[in-house]
Simulated scan of single mutants.
Amino acid sequence: MEPEPVRRVLADNLRRARLDSGISLSELSRRSGIGKATLSALESGAGNPTIETVFSLSRALGAPISTLLEDSVPTLSVVRGDEQDVLSGPTIDLRMLRTLRRNGVAVEVFDQQIRTGGPQPSSGHIGTEHTIVQVGTLRVHVGEQTVDLHAGDAIAFDAHQPHSYEAIDGDVRSVLLLEYPPGEAQRVFDLHP
C-alpha cells in the first residue's frame, strides 16, 4: 500500500486531536520536540511520518496511537497485513491492525517486526505495552531491567518508562498490544466512537 493513506489519516487525526486538546501548533512543537514546520506539513498531509514522530505526537498529546493512525473500522473487518501501511524506525516496522474497545479499555493491536542492527529506543508513551514473541529472540530493556524473550514468551510493562527492543540472533516477529485504561482510553472513544 502506498504511504499516501497514512499521511491522509494522520493529517486528519492529528489536527482533530490537537484542536480537541486545545493546544496550538507551537505548543505541540514544544511538547513533542518536533519542529512547527514539520507539524504543519503533517497536518496538511504533506509530511513523511516516521515511527518516532508518531510516538512523540502520541506522548505529547497524551493520546493513544490509534487516535492518530486509525480510520473508522466497520463492524466486520478482515485486515491483510501486507496491505497495511508500515511505520518504520531504524530497526523496527509496525503495522496497525486494529483497535479493540471494551468496558472503557482500549487495546491497539500491531504486527511488529524487529530487525537486527541495534536497539530501537522509545522514551516512553502512555499505556501498558504487551509484546508476544512469535519468531526469534527479542531483548527488551525497560528502565534498568533487561529480559530476553523467545518464541512463545510475552512481556508487559508500563510504557511511560523509557524502553527499547533489540533483535538478537536474527529478525524477530511479534505482536504488540498497547493497552489504555479508562482514563487514557477515553480519547480513543471520543475520537473514534
Rank of each mutant, 00 (worst) to 15 (best):
I51R: 06
V78W: 08
S164G: 14
S29C: 01
T91M: 03
E129N: 09
T128Y: 08
E83Q: 15
A41W: 00
L57R: 08
T131F: 03
S174E: 04
V6H: 00
V6Y: 01
A106T: 02
L177R: 01
G89L: 10
S164Y: 11
D20Q: 13
P181K: 10
I51P: 00
L19N: 12
R115F: 11
V6G: 00
R98C: 11
E144H: 12
G89F: 06
I51D: 06
V133T: 02
T75Q: 12
E2G: 15
E144Y: 05
G117A: 08
I132Y: 09
G143V: 09
L87E: 01
Q145Y: 03
G33R: 03
V188Q: 02
R187N: 07
F157G: 07
P49L: 14
L61G: 03
G104H: 00
D111N: 13
V147R: 15
L87Y: 04
D169P: 05
H141V: 15
S26R: 15
L10T: 02
G118M: 02
A159D: 09
Q134I: 04
D169V: 10
R59M: 06
F157R: 03
V6T: 07
G152I: 04
R173L: 14
V135H: 12
L57P: 04
I114M: 05
D111G: 07
L39Q: 06
S32C: 12
D169L: 11
E179G: 11
S77W: 07
D20N: 13
R7L: 12
S24K: 10
N103H: 14
R59P: 03
V142H: 09
S24C: 11
F55C: 03
G33C: 05
H163I: 06
P64M: 05
Q186N: 07
L97T: 00
R101S: 14
I65H: 00
G127S: 11
V54G: 06
R173W: 04
G143Y: 09
G152H: 06
R187V: 14
V78M: 13
R187F: 09
L61F: 10
G117I: 07
L57N: 08
F110P: 00
Y180Q: 07
L191N: 06
A60C: 12
R15D: 02
L42S: 02
V54E: 08
D12Y: 03
D82T: 05
D93T: 08
Q84I: 08
D158V: 04
H192A: 06
M96L: 15
D93F: 03
S44Q: 14
P162V: 12
S58W: 05
H192Y: 03
D85S: 13
H160N: 13
G89R: 05
G35A: 15
R115Q: 12
L94R: 03
F189E: 02
R187E: 10
E83H: 13
V175L: 14
G81C: 09
E144I: 04
S44V: 06
L177K: 01
V188T: 11
L28W: 01
S56E: 15
D153P: 06
T50F: 11
H130K: 04
V175M: 11
V142T: 12
A17M: 14
N13Y: 05
E27T: 10
M96S: 05
P193M: 04
